Amino acid sequence: STVKVRLGHLEVTLHNVSEEDVRELRELWKNGADEEDLRRWLEEWKK
């Protein structure tokens, strides 16, 4: 499914993403990950 995730002022649209992935991303964000960390996660996730 396609999910729009809003993290601060960063809005990311993920395609074919699982609930688990979204949860993981939100956890990262809650734990103080900055945009760099999130971008890195997204790069990994896209592979």
Rank of each mutant, 00 (worst) to 15 (best):
E43N: 06
V22C: 08
N16A: 06
L42N: 00
L7K: 03
A33E: 05
H9T: 12
S1R: 13
K4S: 10
T13F: 09
E27K: 07
H15Q: 08
T2L: 08
E44F: 06
E43Q: 07
H9R: 13
E19T: 09
W29H: 15
S18I: 03
V12P: 00
L42E: 01
E35R: 03
E11K: 05
A33P: 06
E35L: 12
N16L: 05
E27S: 04
E36C: 09
R39C: 04
E36M: 11
V5T: 01
V12N: 01
K47G: 11
S18D: 06
E27Y: 03
E44L: 08
E11R: 06
R26F: 14
S18L: 08
D34Q: 12
G32C: 05
R6T: 13
L38P: 00
L14V: 05
K30Y: 12
R40Q: 12
E27P: 01
R40M: 10
K4F: 01
L28P: 00
W41L: 03
E20I: 08
L25H: 00
E11I: 10
W29C: 11
W41E: 00
R40V: 09
A33V: 11
G8Q: 04
V22E: 09
W45Y: 12
N16K: 05
D37K: 10
A33L: 06
W41T: 01
G8E: 03
W41D: 00
E27V: 02
T2M: 10
K30E: 15
W45N: 06
E11N: 11
V22G: 02
S1C: 12
R6E: 04
T13E: 10
R6N: 08
E19R: 06
L25R: 00
K47A: 11
W29M: 15
T13N: 04
L14I: 12
W45F: 12
E43K: 06
L38T: 02
S1T: 14
E36T: 10
L25G: 00
L28F: 05
V3Y: 01
L42I: 15
E44G: 09
D37G: 09
L28A: 03
R6S: 11
V5H: 01
E35Y: 12
W45H: 13
K30L: 14
L7C: 06
L14T: 00
V12H: 06
N31L: 05
K4N: 08
N31G: 10
A33N: 04
H9I: 11
V5K: 01
V12K: 02
E20S: 13
L28Y: 06
L7R: 02
L28M: 13
K47F: 05
L14C: 06
R23W: 10
V22S: 05
R26P: 00
R6G: 03
E36L: 10
E19K: 08
S18E: 05
L28E: 02
L42R: 00
W41I: 03
T13V: 14
L38Y: 04
R6V: 14
R6F: 07
V12A: 04
L7E: 01
D21I: 09
L14E: 00
T2H: 09
E35S: 08
E19H: 08
L10V: 13
G8A: 05
E19F: 09
T13I: 14
L10I: 14
R6Y: 06
E20N: 10
T13H: 10
V22H: 07
L28Q: 04
